[in-house]
Simulated assay, not measured.
Amino acid sequence: MTDMLGGLAPATFALALAITLFAGFVKGAVGFAMPLIMVSAFSAFLPPQMAVAGLILPTLVTNLSQAFRQGIPAAVETSMTYRRFLIGTVVFILVSAPLVTVIPKETFLLTLGLPITAFAALQLAGVPLALPIHHRTRAEWGLGILGGLYGGISGIWGPPLLVYLLSIRAPKTEAVRAQGVVFLIGAVALLIAHLRTGVANVHSLAFSAALVVPAVIGLALGYRLQDRLDPERFRRWTQVLLVLTGLNLVRQAITG
């Protein structure tokens, strides 16, 4: 029972469950942001390594649903379409994961939060930031590598993918499925990497397993909202959420 609570008092553990429920709902509605919400909220009362470990299993399980929601053939096709991004992400998750106990937390949060906030805010302001189509392959490799570098350390590799999907104006269903596929494969890589670093251990994974149930419940509730969103509103909600999560990361970096 102590392992499942992550060493937390029952009231604090209940807060972790509530945060995960909300993160699952947001993920179901817009297709991403579960790790962003969980890490940014958990960091207020958990050590960074426990915060990262806590999101591993909820991320893995919910992305199984998201990736295969339109069936196996669609997920396989998406994997091939975004294969460069996937390769870059997975390889550099494995490369950067050992740095989780070395890099200063404030430095990382700031370098992640500022680009996210700037990109999404400019999009909301109507500034065209779409990547030129002849640079698409280069951008896919570069953003995949960037996502992997951040992902191994923080458990967050979604923002670079979202930047890419927004830039190529991917249709809503394809964008959500692409996020599910990339996040699923990345979650497997993250689990493998942190089994090696020791961040994922019996104690932390028991805590992570306890968070799966509220994550799945929130995801199911969020799906109901996602199905009623039109593409433009979906894109705008994505941008608004990026701004809010980016500002929260910057706030944590500044306040320590």
Rank of each mutant, 00 (worst) to 15 (best):
G126Y: 10
I133Q: 14
G158Y: 05
G155N: 09
L86C: 05
R169K: 15
A67E: 04
Q49K: 07
G71I: 09
I103H: 06
S79M: 14
A139S: 15
P128D: 14
G158I: 11
I56V: 15
L122W: 10
L99A: 13
F85M: 15
I72L: 15
Q70H: 12
L57T: 05
T89K: 01
L131V: 15
A125T: 02
P47Q: 13
R138V: 13
A97R: 01
I116K: 00
R83E: 02
G54C: 06
H134R: 13
P115T: 06
T173L: 11
V163Q: 04
L64Q: 10
A75I: 06
I153G: 00
F119I: 09
I56S: 12
L55C: 08
G88S: 08
T137R: 15
T78H: 02
T137E: 14
G113Q: 03
L143Q: 03
E106K: 11
L94W: 11
F119Y: 15
T173F: 05
H134C: 04
A75E: 08
F92M: 10
I156W: 06
T137G: 14
P171N: 14
L57V: 14
G71T: 09
R138P: 03
A121S: 13
T173D: 13
L161G: 03
P159A: 09
L112N: 03
L149D: 10
W141L: 04
P132R: 10
T107R: 07
I116C: 00
R83H: 08
A121G: 08
H135G: 11
L124R: 10
G144Q: 06
T59F: 00
